[in-house]
Lab assay of single mutants.
Amino acid sequence: FHVTIHVGDITFHIHGVSEEEVKKLEELVRRGADWREIKKTIEEIEK
């Protein structure tokens, strides 16, 4: 999957994300995680 996440003024683009990881990111966004937490999760996914 290709994912784009907008957190305030920050936009993250992630490529090659599995469905499971998409759900993890959706959950973070849904519970209102700040951009640092989302960035950390994205960095883990990209490894």
Rank of each mutant, 00 (worst) to 15 (best):
37 E>M: 03
5 I>V: 07
10 I>H: 15
44 E>S: 05
27 E>Q: 07
18 S>Q: 07
11 T>P: 03
34 D>C: 10
45 I>E: 01
20 E>Q: 13
22 V>S: 07
7 V>E: 02
18 S>P: 07
14 I>K: 01
21 E>Y: 14
35 W>S: 03
37 E>K: 03
6 H>R: 13
26 E>W: 09
21 E>R: 04
24 K>E: 06
7 V>P: 01
10 I>L: 12
44 E>V: 03
3 V>N: 03
18 S>T: 15
13 H>M: 08
46 E>R: 10
3 V>C: 13
2 H>R: 10
15 H>I: 11
3 V>W: 08
36 R>L: 15
45 I>Y: 08
34 D>V: 02
14 I>L: 12
11 T>H: 11
8 G>N: 08
23 K>G: 07
22 V>T: 06
29 V>M: 09
41 T>R: 11
39 K>T: 08
17 V>C: 07
20 E>S: 13
20 E>N: 10
20 E>I: 12
38 I>S: 00
35 W>Q: 04
18 S>K: 08
41 T>D: 01
36 R>C: 14
37 E>W: 02
9 D>K: 10
21 E>K: 06
47 K>I: 08
8 G>P: 02
26 E>C: 13
9 D>F: 09
29 V>W: 07
37 E>T: 06
26 E>K: 09
8 G>T: 03
2 H>D: 14
28 L>S: 02
40 K>L: 09
26 E>T: 09
2 H>N: 15
3 V>F: 12
46 E>V: 14
26 E>Q: 10
12 F>M: 08
35 W>M: 08
16 G>W: 13
22 V>F: 14
1 F>N: 10
21 E>W: 15
47 K>R: 12
5 I>H: 01
2 H>P: 06
34 D>P: 09
4 T>G: 02
30 R>A: 15
17 V>I: 15
12 F>G: 01
14 I>M: 08
43 E>C: 06
18 S>H: 06
5 I>N: 00
24 K>A: 08
38 I>H: 00
39 K>I: 14
16 G>T: 12
6 H>N: 09
44 E>D: 09
34 D>N: 07
39 K>C: 11
43 E>V: 05
43 E>K: 04
13 H>A: 06
29 V>F: 08
25 L>Y: 02
13 H>W: 06
11 T>N: 05
40 K>G: 05
14 I>R: 01
16 G>M: 12
38 I>F: 05
5 I>W: 02
18 S>W: 04
39 K>R: 08
40 K>R: 09
5 I>G: 02
25 L>M: 03
19 E>G: 11
42 I>A: 02
34 D>H: 06
27 E>I: 05
10 I>W: 15
16 G>Q: 07
38 I>L: 05
14 I>F: 08
24 K>D: 04
39 K>S: 11
32 G>L: 03
10 I>E: 10
10 I>S: 06
46 E>Q: 13
6 H>C: 10
3 V>D: 01
40 K>F: 07
29 V>G: 02
32 G>K: 04
46 E>P: 03
38 I>A: 01
10 I>Q: 11
40 K>C: 08
29 V>R: 03
8 G>I: 04
29 V>C: 11
10 I>T: 08
32 G>Y: 02
19 E>Q: 11
13 H>L: 09
5 I>Q: 00
27 E>M: 07
3 V>S: 03
14 I>A: 06
40 K>W: 08
28 L>E: 02
41 T>N: 05
30 R>P: 00
33 A>H: 03
36 R>P: 09
11 T>S: 10
47 K>D: 06
9 D>G: 12
46 E>F: 15
41 T>Q: 12
36 R>T: 14
45 I>G: 01
20 E>C: 08
1 F>P: 06
27 E>N: 06
4 T>E: 08
38 I>Y: 02
14 I>C: 08
28 L>Q: 04
28 L>P: 00
10 I>C: 15
34 D>T: 09
26 E>A: 08
33 A>T: 05
5 I>L: 12
21 E>G: 14
21 E>P: 01
22 V>A: 13
41 T>F: 15
38 I>V: 06
14 I>W: 06
7 V>N: 06
46 E>G: 10
27 E>R: 05
40 K>T: 09
7 V>C: 14
36 R>N: 15
16 G>L: 11
37 E>N: 01
29 V>I: 10
5 I>E: 00
25 L>T: 00
43 E>N: 05
18 S>C: 05
24 K>Q: 11
17 V>A: 11
32 G>D: 05
39 K>Y: 12
6 H>Y: 09
42 I>K: 01
15 H>W: 14
43 E>S: 05
12 F>Q: 01
13 H>Q: 13
37 E>A: 03
8 G>Y: 06
10 I>N: 08
33 A>N: 02
47 K>E: 09
6 H>T: 14
43 E>H: 05
9 D>A: 11
25 L>F: 05
21 E>S: 14
12 F>C: 03
44 E>R: 04
19 E>V: 11
13 H>F: 12
9 D>P: 10
15 H>T: 13
6 H>F: 10
